[in-house]
Design a protein around this nucleic acid. Structure first.
Length: 524
RNA sequence: GGGGCUGUGGUGUAGCUUGGCUAUCAUUGGAGGUUUGGGACCUCUAGACCCCGGUUCGAAUCCGGGCAGCCCCA
């Protein structure tokens, strides 16, 4: 069908353009929405909607929502995924916001190679050991016999710091602050899941070098706060901030800090990490500088990252039995305008819908004027796809100079005068964000239980809760807890008061004196 | 790391136990018509046995291996 209508989807054409009269037949030929028009779906696959309830079978629900809402799709290779336009639009919205932050902070984007020489990995022993099980290697036997093999990056510390070693000479070169948007490969074998655990995923990784430990630590914390903003203010997913235990920290870091959330199935999800690398990599990669005093010194480094896993988080956190619910600030189309078309008034109704689309242009509306689908079909479609607000406009509304607004989160309908629609849409989108966030927050708070003995710990984990408990801080003890319950230490809260055990408190598992309080849960 | 379940048009399925003619049904796609305030209806049409090997006159069906998906345990 005509390419002309491509514009209708997201950029409604002015009313005047449609003032010419056509016969119904000609109209269909000239004005039908083209396949693959942006925003307007072309349902080539199953369009029946999600067949299981979220609360009853979340793994199946999650998979169906990803596939049926056309966020992502499976690929022929285990653990690899196709990110479809809707999923990628979400990623781009996250990128846009984070790039804005980077710019504000003065961190620059760059790009380093996908392949890393094996010898680079071995320079930092703990790092090499930590990533060993999941690195994928490239070795072409014909060309490279006897030569060093290459890793496909699971993370880029080593390849980047090799360059940094040559770039940093003087204190004047510091701080060196670079971010990279890239794909990485971690060869997971078990429990792969779209977005949440895949062999290849997209992420950003910031890698900075500082003159002093203080400056380094400050920015390590600053980016943890940036991640909180991305999760909570952009995606409406509540998180808590904390420090990883020694067992769970990044291989090669002295401290790892993370933002953690709890999904509705009781599983914790790490949504971003910021690592204080101290001087270990600087030593291993010969990054040094001449200080202000003329002495040769080692700099301090951090690295921080989040991935497309965030998309999985927002799907799990907000979706419902009808499908996806997109938090308004990342939704590529915040509004879907659905005209209620009646044959005899078709021209007028379609024109009005386009006028509404134009009025709401800042919200990138989908204006679905196709007449080969009924309005009921479209309602279901945009609900499945998670569009935050639906605007209905039919003959009754036109007669009364009004539109009908329907929220995706609550399903609440309201009628607003035509001229007030734009302002009301803006308000509702904000309310929607807040409502999603508060609902998730209440759910999470209700799912955390403080326990003092191990029997209660096991019961709580078994009933899909997150546990807050005192721990001795011993790696072995933490390991045994994992063996027994499959739960891992998620983080030690920042709040000193929360993190410090009561006087005389003992470890929830081994009974030794407690060193700190931490959150435990089964995790993705 | 261990165990289990599953794989048939784009999607969901019947058939498989007990091998046999043109692989069932619905939906989706295409064409046409009639419709449109919560997944409309009619007519015509297109489209599939995961891959490799074995047993057999004959395999979607039985056997072995592989690949992929899902679940449970650790």
């Amino acid at each position: 069908m005509a390419a002309k209508d491509k514009h209708k989807a997201e950029h409604p054409a002015p009313k005047a353009e449609h003032s010419g009269q056509h016969t119904p037949k000609a109209q269909k030929t000239d004005h039908g929405t083209p396949k693959n028009a942006p925003g307007v779906p072309n349902p080539v696959e199953d369009t029946k909607g999600v067949t299981v309830k979220k609360a009853e079978d979340m793994p199946e629900w999650y998979s169906q929502v990803c596939v049926k809402a056309r966020v992502a799709d499976y690929s022929p290779i285990k653990g690899c995924m196709v990110i479809r336009p809707l999923g990628f639009a979400l990623w781009q919205a996250i990128q846009d916001e984070f790039n804005r932050m980077l710019k504000e902070d003065g961190v620059e984007n760059a790009y380093f190679p996908l392949f890393i020489p094996e010898s680079f990995f071995q320079r930092e022993a703990e790092h090499a050991e930590g990533f060993k099980p999941e690195v994928a290697w490239v070795q072409n036997k014909d060309d490279d016999a006897g030569k060093e093999r290459f890793a496909i990056r699971p993370t880029s510390e080593t390849i980047m710091y090799d360059s940094y070693g040559r770039w940093v000479r003087s204190w004047r070169d510091l701080p060196l602050r670079i971010n990279q948007w890239a794909n990485v490969v971690r060869w997971e074998v078990k429990d792969v899941k779209l977005f949440l655990r895949s062999r290849e995923f997209l992420w950003q990784e910031g890698h900075c070098v500082y003159e002093t430990a203080e400056a380094c630590h400050e920015e390590t914390m600053h980016y943890l706060e940036r991640y909180r903003q991305i999760a909570e203010d952009l995606l409406a997913v509540p998180v808590f901030l904390g420090k990883k235990t020694a067992r769970e920290k990044f291989a090669g870091a002295i401290s790892t800090y993370s933002i953690e959330s709890l999904m509705p199935d009781g599983k914790a999800l790490q949504m971003g990490t910021s690592h204080d690398l101290s001087q270990g990599f600087a030593k291993a990669f010969n990054i040094s500088f001449q200080g202000r005093d003329g002495e040769q010194r080692l700099p301090w480094q951090n690295s921080w990252g989040f991935s497309t896993r965030l998309i999985g988080a927002l799907i799990l956190a907000h979706g419902d039995d009808k499908g996806l619910v997109l938090p308004p600030r990342v939704a590529p189309n915040k509004v879907a305008v659905v005209p209620i078309i009646f044959e005899k008034e078709k021209e007028m109704i379609v024109a009005k819908a386009e006028e509404v689309g134009l009025m709401l242009n800042e919200f990138r509306p989908i204006v679905d004027t196709r007449d080969e689908y009924t309005s009921g079909w479209k309602f279901n479609e945009y609900e499945l796809r998670g569009v935050p607000l639906r605007v209905e406009i039919g003959p009754r509304d036109i007669a009364k100079d009004q539109v009908v607004l329907v929220r995706r989160d609550t399903g609440a309908k309201e009628i607003v005068p035509f001229l007030k629609a734009r302002d009301r849409v803006a308000e509702l989108l904000e309310e929607l964000h807040e409502n999603l966030f508060q609902n998730a927050k209440r759910r999470i708070e209700a799912s955390i239980v403080a326990v003092e003995d191990f029997a209660a710990f096991e019961r709580a984990i078994e009933s899909k809760k997150m546990v807050f408990a005192s721990h001795c801080g011993e790696d072995d003890c933490e390991f045994v807890i994992k063996e027994k319950t499959a739960a891992t230490a998620r983080c030690i809260p920042f709040d000193e008061e929360k993190a410090t055990p009561k006087k005389g408190a003992t470890c929830v598992h081994c009974g030794e004196p407690a060193k700190y309080n931490a959150y435990f849960a089964r995790a993705y």
